[in-house]
C-alpha cells in the first residue's frame, strides 16, 4: 500500500517533469496521461486503505479513464492538424503562437 502510494507520487513527478521539459507535442500528451494515471492510482490506493473496500473511487477512476481517452483522442487530432499545417517537424515549441 505504502509502495503504491510512493509509486503514485513518483509517477506524478515523472509526468509533470515530462510535460514541462519535453518539446515534442506527442510527448506532452504522453506525459499528461502518465500524470492523470498517477492521480487515479492515488484514488484507488485510498479506496483500498479504507476499512471497507470503497467502491466510489473505483467508479471515479472508471469515469476518469473514459474521459481521458476522449480528451487524448482530441488532443492527438488537434496535434496532427497543427503539425500538418506547419508542414514542419514534429517537434519544436509552437513557433507561430509566439508572435502575438
Amino acid at each position: 500500500m505504502t509502495l503504491y502510494l510512493l509509486l503514485a507520487v513518483a509517477l506524478l513527478i515523472i509526468g509533470l517533469h515530462g510535460l514541462f521539459v519535453c518539446a515534442q507535442l506527442m510527448r506532452k500528451i504522453l506525459a499528461l496521461n502518465v500524470l492523470t494515471t498517477a492521480v487515479f492510482l492515488l484514488l484507488v490506493v485510498l479506496a483500498q486503505a479504507a476499512e471497507v473496500l470503497d467502491p466510489v473511487p473505483h467508479a471515479m477512476v472508471l469515469t476518469g479513464i473514459v474521459v481521458t481517452v476522449s480528451t487524448t483522442a482530441v488532443a492527438l487530432g488537434l496535434m496532427v492538424r497543427l503539425l500538418e499545417r506547419r508542414g514542419g517537424p514534429v517537434s519544436g515549441r509552437d513557433r507561430d503562437s509566439r508572435n502575438s
Binding site: 515530462g18 521539459v21 506527442m26 510527448r27 487530432g77 496535434m79 514542419g88 517537424p89 514534429v90 517537434s91
Partner: peptide
C-alpha cells in the same frame, strides 16, 4: 497519430531537454 506524422522529420528532430 504517429502514422500520420512526418515520420522521418520526427526522428531527425527528436529532442527532449
Amino acid at each position: 497519430a504517429l502514422g500520420r506524422l512526418d515520420w522521418e522529420a520526427g526522428r531527425a528532430t527528436d529532442e527532449c531537454l
